[in-house]
Design a protein around this nucleic acid. Structure first.
Lengths: 118, 118
DNA sequence: GTAAGTACTATACTATAGTATAGCCCTATA
DNA sequence: TATAGGGCTATACTATAGTATAGTACTTAC
């Protein structure tokens, strides 16, 4: 085992969680959905209306994805007709810091690019 | 102009920088390339060897992308034969915080998922 | 009975990201 | 003269993300 191998192991164990985090956040719709849900639990149709441009198919897919990742919870009300809502989980709250730092860096980056500094 | 419109404006101005940041970081190869370059400037072939599995085509494409975004700088040495190296810019250093928070959250997330807590 | 809303799913398509393979032009070395 | 390395680019392919459009099964309101 050489230094480079140690380094390589180190890299992998650094990169894997970053990949995990990016996978959870990435794609065109996940963040907008999270934002829509920050103001409280919402029904499928409500989210669909707030997240402009999303198709039912994508919303359905993304919500399932986010449910698997523990970011949203699906609540079914036992009424007639059945009412379904989606709500952010406590786990999704822990994303706050990540989102903040992405936002801050994104703003800095945009300024640099626009100012021609880069 | 209603409350919802104000909210909507707010959302867009929050989401845009996040999108910007994610675009810069996303894809399979950008982070591994950044990691490879943290240990100093490297030549095309060296990066290619350190970032296991990347094809020349992708490396070429990603490096150009990162150059446009001001993350790496291409240095051409006026020797025979010409020597080309890539080096991280000061701007890419500002990504440190983002990467840290992605990594931390990714680790937390992985633990939660594996423990079945989610 | 028909129109409209709710929460979806199905099918088929396009666009973008990534892979596989090869080749080019240069130079140094055997 | 051939072989290998360096720094790419070209072409063609596959895989994944996203879009467009339609349909289903239910229920309430007109």
């Amino acid at each position: 085992m050489e230094t480079t191998d140690l380094k390589h192991q180190e890299c992998i164990s650094t990169l894997r969680p970053i990949r995990d985090a990016l996978d959870v956040l990435n794609g065109k719709w996940k963040l907008p959905i999270i934002v829509a849900l920050t103001f409280g639990e919402k029904r499928f149709g409500e989210i669909s209306r707030e997240v402009h441009g999303i198709t039912d198919r994508m919303l359905s897919k993304e919500l399932r994805d986010m449910e698997v990742n523990g970011l949203v919870k699906r609540k079914v009300y036992d009424t007639y007709p059945v009412k379904v809502t989606y709500i952010l989980t406590p786990h999704s709250q822990t994303l706050g810091g990540v989102i903040e730092s992405l936002r801050n860096w994104g703003e800095l980056h945009r300024k640099k690019i626009l100012s021609g500094e880069v």
